[in-house]
Nucleic acid binder design. Structure first.
Lengths: 195, 195
DNA sequence: CGACTCCTATGACCGCCGTCATAGGATGGC
DNA sequence: GCCATCCTATGACGGCGGTCATAGGAGTCG
């Protein structure tokens, strides 16, 4: 994950811990330890305190998810909406089967924990969802989905994925994820066919 | 909400606070205060501590969601899968437009906050999802959805709803919810038509 | 009246957390 | 050598949280 400076490591570690334990249960000391960064660097790099760190972690996650889209497309021999969604789902089923159900989506965690209490974090989460929805919608457009539906379908895909993630984690079973992919594929592919 | 004994009020209050602030940010003292119950009653009724209280709140939420399904069906002149989903979504859009985006789903909150740290709560969340999926699946069966698809479609509906809830809260906009309803309805209704 | 059970009340303990304050290196330019 | 800047290090503080311990009503039944 590109061993950059301690600052980036801390943001990355924060995202990892948040997606596992939630925002409130993730301590600053814990982030520093996980990043193998000095505790004193926290207040140096993040004078805005935990709020700033969390917001940057959320933003990082949004960018990461958005960037993944291009990689998924590259992996598909023939890009289809259903194929893209299947890849998005597969990223998670792979992780869960390989490493267990330890973590969910950090943006979801931040939303659940901070939506009501911390305005700036809620806004960061909204921005992260936007940074994710945008590339997905553009990809759908490239596949022939009419412009007026690209954003709606992208939102649907991400909604379904996020919800299935929750259920999969609760059940410790990828069932909800594979079901989501299977059931949604026909609808998505139908939207790409010119009518 | 049926002014029952203090015990039930505390469970109900816990669910309300959890869905607003998450599990970790909800204090026991806060629950007692919200329920207008004496603090000492907490350890009396919930000797298992916070874990027990949270688990009961999650279970309560699951039962509540499951029971709602019958009410939604009763409200529909002609029951259809899409109509049921629209009602499920409408419950949330109504709340958000009436009372603001203060709360999400308590089961989602518990999953995000406790899935990795507290096994019993994760199991309670899985049970809550099951208590919700069951009635939905049975309703779909009654509408003519083939048995082998009822559970899958019910899971899809709840996945999509949960994810859209997250996005709606982050954006403070019901857009994701209405989109989910609109885009999923054709797929759901198609499954009810005998082929 | 006494005893017993159920519930309430309150204060104390200990641990964790975010933050602040302060000082100690390190590095690079001059 | 010296200074400025950037980063690191560490201890302390105040607050809050869950839990425990202990005791105080409040009925009820014998």
């Amino acid at each position: 994950m590109s061993e950059r400076g301690p600052r980036e490591r801390m943001v990355f570690s924060a995202a990892q811990l948040i997606r596992r334990d939630g925002v409130a249960s993730t301590g600053m000391r814990e982030v520093a330890a996980h990043a193998e960064a000095p505790r004193g660097s926290l207040q140096h790099y993040f004078p805005g305190g935990k709020e700033q760190l969390v917001n940057e972690a959320v933003a990082w996650a949004g960018r990461y998810a958005g960037n993944r889209v291009a990689r998924f497309l590259a992996a598909l021999p023939e890009p289809t909406p259903g194929g893209l969604f299947a890849e998005m789902v597969r990223q998670w089923t792979d992780e869960y089967e390989r490493a267990g159900f330890g973590g969910g989506c950090p943006v979801a965690a931040a939303t659940v924990d901070c939506a009501e209490s911390t305005t700036s974090t809620r806004e960061a989460a909204a921005a992260a969802f936007a940074a994710w929805t945008g590339p997905v919608a553009r990809a759908l457009a490239d596949m022939g989905v009419p412009e007026e539906r690209t954003t709606d379908l992208a939102t649907l895909m991400i909604s379904t994925l996020e919800g299935a993630l929750l259920i999969a984690r609760a059940e410790q079973d990828v069932r909800a994820l594979t079901t989501a992919s299977r059931e949604l594929t026909p609808l998505l592919d139908a939207a790409a066919r010119p009518r």
